[in-house]
Design a protein around this nucleic acid. Structure first.
Length: 429
RNA sequence: UCCUCCGUAGCUCAAUGGUAGAGCGGCCGGCUGUUAACCGGUAGGUUGUAGGUUCGAGUCCUACCGGAGGAGCCA
C-alpha cells in the first residue's frame, strides 16, 4: 500500500511503501535507523541486518543525507518514537543518492541559511512555520468568506502611488511608467462599491531600504474593505477576525507550534474584544512611563513596544493626528484634527500588524486633501468618481501577513515567515 | 541614508604581533535501540579584497566589498 507519513497510523501491522527523503541516519554494526521525511511528517525506519537481504542493507548504508528513496516496511506502534510509530524496513529503493548536503544538522549562520533557503525550508522548523503560515491564510479566508466578504484581486502593476508616501518599484509599461503596487486599497474601495464587503490577498512591494526584523521588500497583505461601515464596526471586524485566526492556529497547529517551541500561553489570551486606547491616551501612557513624546508625532518601534507591554492582548491605538496619517482617512467629525483610524499593535514587541481607517466619503473634502498633499488629481479621477456616484460611509484595513505569522510563531525575524523572502540585498534564491 | 558589530576549512567557531587549530559534515573502520548517537583514523586553508605599519600581521591602521543588529519609513 502506497501512503504518506501523516496517514501512517491507519496502517499499523501492515506493509506500506512511502516516497521519502533521508533526513538523518544513525547506525551501528547490525542496526540502522533512517530518519525519513516526506513533507507530510517524519518517521524513523529501522533496519536489522539479520532481517533484510544484504543488498537492502548495503543500499541503506550508502544513503546520504537528503537522498531520495522509496522505502517499504511494516508499521509498528512504538512508545520510543516521537510520533508514536516506526517503520520496520523490508526494502529500500534509492531514487538518488544525494551529493554532500550543505546544511548539516547543527547551527548555521543567517547568511548561509538564507543563501540556501531553497534547502533550508526542508528542515522541520521551517516546514512547521510554513505550515502555520498556510493555516493562518486559511483561517483568514474562512472567516471572511463566512462573513459575506468577496475575494477581489487588485492589480499588481499600477500607474501611480496609492498613498504617495513610500518609495515604489519602478518599471516600464511599454511606453508608460508603471509601479509595483504598495497597497490594493484604493482599488478595494472601488470593489466595495460594487460588491459590498470585499477583501484582497496578494503581494505588495516597498522599495524602502528598511533593514529590521519587521520588514520585507515584498510582503503579503489582506485588505478588507466594507461599504456602509463606520470606524467602530471596522474595529469589531478586525478583532473578531484576528482572534478567530489565533484560536484556529492553536487548535489546528499544535504539533507545529510545539516543534518551533512557541509558548502558547500568551496566545490563548487573544480573544475579542481587544483593548482600545486613543492616540491621546497612548501619548499620556508613554510620558508616564518616562518616554518623552510630543503630541503630533508618529510612534516609532520602541514606542509601540512600550505601549504593547501594558496589555496582554493586541491593542488598538485610535484617533491619530490627521497629519501623520494617509490622505484618504476620514477626520473625526467631533474633532477634525484626528482621524477615524486605528493601528493594531501586537503583543511581545511585534509591532503594528493592522492599519485601518474609515475613508473620506465627502467629495469636497477629498479634493481638498489632494491639494494639501499635492497629489496629481488627474491620476485619481477614477477614485474621485467613487465619491461622485453614490458615495457611502466605508472603512477598511490592511493586515500584514508576515508580521502576523512572526507574532503567532514567536519568531525573531519576518524572514522565516515567507518561503523566499525578498529583503534589502537579498533577491537570491 | 545613518549608528553599532562581524568576515579564519563545506559549516559553527578558536588562535598575547611570533609554526593557522577544534567540533560538525565528507571519506575509511568499529559498535543490535540510536534521538544533532557514539568511538578510532584520515583528507581539507591565498584568514573577504587592496594597500600600509612592522624583523614578522589572522591579529594593528586606511579604503573598499559582503553580512548582522538597530534607526527612519511602514504592514
Amino acid at each position: 500500500m502506497v501512503t504518506t507519513i501523516n496517514k501512517i497510523s491507519e496502517y499499523v501491522g501492515q506493509e506500506v511503501k512511502i516516497g521519502a527523503w533521508l533526513y538523518n541516519k544513525r547506525s551501528s554494526g547490525k542496526i540502522q535507523f533512517l530518519q525519513l521525511r516526506d513533507g507530510t511528517g517524519f518517521i524513523q525506519g529501522v533496519l536489522v541486518k539479520k532481517q533484510v537481504s544484504p543488498e537492502v542493507w548495503e543500499q541503506a548504508q550508502n544513503l546520504t543525507q537528503e537522498s531520495s528513496l522509496y522505502v517499504t516496511g511494516t508499521v509498528r506502534q512504538d512508545d520510543r518514537a516521537p510520533s508514536g510509530y516506526e517503520l520496520d524496513v523490508t526494502d529500500v529503493e534509492p531514487i538518488q543518492v544525494a551529493e554532500e548536503y550543505p546544511i548539516a544538522l547543527k547551527e548555521h549562520g543567517v547568511e548561509f541559511l538564507m543563501d540556501h533557503r531553497h534547502l533550508w525550508i526542508r528542515s522541520p522548523r521551517q516546514r512547521a512555520i510554513l505550515k502555520i503560515r498556510a493555516e493562518i491564510i486559511r483561517a483568514i479566508q474562512d472567516w471572511l468568506n463566512n462573513e459575506s466578504f468577496t475575494l477581489v484581486d487588485p492589480p499588481v502593476l499600477t500607474p501611480s502611488s496609492c498613498e504617495g508616501t513610500t518609495n515604489l518599484f519602478h518599471t516600464k509599461y511599454f511606453d508608460e511608467d508603471a509601479f509595483l503596487t504598495q497597497s490594493g486599497q484604493l482599488y478595494m474601495e472601488a470593489a466595495a462599491m460594487a460588491l459590498g464587503r470585499v477583501y484582497s490577498f496578494g503581494p505588495t512591494f516597498r522599495a524602502e531600504k528598511s533593514k529590521t526584523r519587521r520588514h520585507l521588500i515584498e510582503f503579503w497583505m489582506i485588505e478588507p474593505e466594507m461599504a456602509f461601515c463606520a470606524h467602530e464596526e471596522s474595529l469589531n471586524i478586525q478583532e473578531n477576525l484576528l482572534s478567530h485566526v489565533v484560536q484556529h492556529v492553536l487548535k489546528h497547529c499544535e504539533a507545529e507550534l510545539k516543534q518551533i517551541g512557541r509558548d502558547t500561553k500568551p496566545l490563548e489570551n487573544v480573544t475579542a474584544p481587544f483593548p482600545r486606547i486613543t492616540y491621546d491616551e497612548a501619548v499620556e501612557l508613554l510620558n508616564k512611563e518616562g518616554m518623552e513624546f510630543k503630541w503630533g508625532e508618529d510612534f516609532g518601534a520602541p514606542h509601540e513596544t512600550k505601549i504593547a507591554e501594558s496589555f496582554d492582548k493586541p491593542v488598538f491605538i485610535t484617533h491619530y493626528p490627521v497629519e501623520v496619517k494617509a490622505f484618504y482617512m476620514k477626520p473625526d467629525p467631533e474633532r477634525p484634527e484626528v482621524a477615524l483610524c486605528a493601528d493594531l499593535i501586537a503583543p511581545e514587541g511585534y509591532g503594528e500588524i493592522i492599519g485601518g481607517s474609515q475613508r473620506i466619503d465627502d467629495p469636497e473634502l477629498l479634493k481638498q486633501r489632494f491639494d494639501e498633499h499635492r497629489l496629481p488629481k488627474e491620476a485619481y479621477e477614477w477614485y474621485m468618481d467613487l465619491r461622485r456616484y453614490g458615495t457611502v460611509p466605508h472603512s477598511g484595513f490592511g493586515l500584514g501577513l508576515e508580521r502576523t505569522v512572526a507574532w503567532i510563531c514567536g519568531l525573531d525575524h519576518v524572514r522565516e515567515t515567507i518561503p523566499f523572502p525578498r529583503m534589502l540585498n537579498r533577491l537570491y534564491p
